[in-house]
Amino acid sequence: GTEIELESKNGQREHYTATSEDEARKIIEKAVRRGIKRIELRGASEQLIRDMQEIAKQIGLQYRTDGSL
């Protein structure tokens, strides 16, 4: 699965493990709508990382991946 670590603007951290790319995408989209400061992805697919970079650029988000592409 993909591990997703979120940090909201007030510094609250949340951790999710998505079993599918679809689920990961839903978690990320929800977080973005809620207003999130930072997202870290571990074990994400190349496609998901590309999507994440696109989203991050659009809304000026900090993100990090573990680089295991």
Rank of each mutant, 00 (worst) to 15 (best):
T2G: 05
T2R: 02
E3V: 10
E3L: 11
E3Y: 14
I4W: 01
E5M: 14
E7Q: 07
K9W: 11
K9T: 13
N10I: 06
G11E: 02
G11R: 02
G11A: 05
Q12E: 14
Q12P: 04
R13C: 13
R13T: 11
R13A: 05
R13N: 06
R13Y: 10
E14T: 07
H15I: 11
Y16Q: 03
Y16C: 11
Y16K: 03
T17S: 11
T17R: 09
T17Q: 08
T17D: 09
T17V: 14
T19N: 09
T19Y: 13
S20I: 02
E21R: 04
E23M: 10
E23G: 03
R25M: 07
R25Y: 08
R25V: 04
I27D: 00
I27H: 02
I27C: 04
I27K: 01
I28R: 00
I28V: 08
I28Q: 10
I28C: 04
E29Y: 10
E29A: 14
K30V: 13
K30G: 13
K30Q: 13
A31S: 05
V32F: 14
V32K: 02
V32H: 02
R33T: 12
R33Q: 14
R33M: 09
G35W: 02
K37N: 10
K37P: 04
K37T: 10
K37Q: 12
I39L: 11
E40C: 15
E40V: 14
E40I: 13
L41G: 00
R42T: 07
R42E: 04
R42D: 03
G43S: 05
G43E: 03
G43Q: 05
A44K: 01
A44L: 02
S45C: 06
E46F: 02
E46W: 03
Q47N: 09
Q47L: 07
Q47R: 09
L48P: 00
L48W: 02
I49V: 09
R50L: 08
D51L: 14
D51E: 08
M52C: 06
M52P: 00
M52D: 00
M52G: 00
Q53F: 12
E54Y: 05
K57W: 07
K57D: 09
K57G: 05
Q58K: 14
Q58P: 01
G60F: 10
R64A: 15
T65S: 14
D66N: 05
D66S: 04
D66L: 02
G67I: 11
L69D: 07
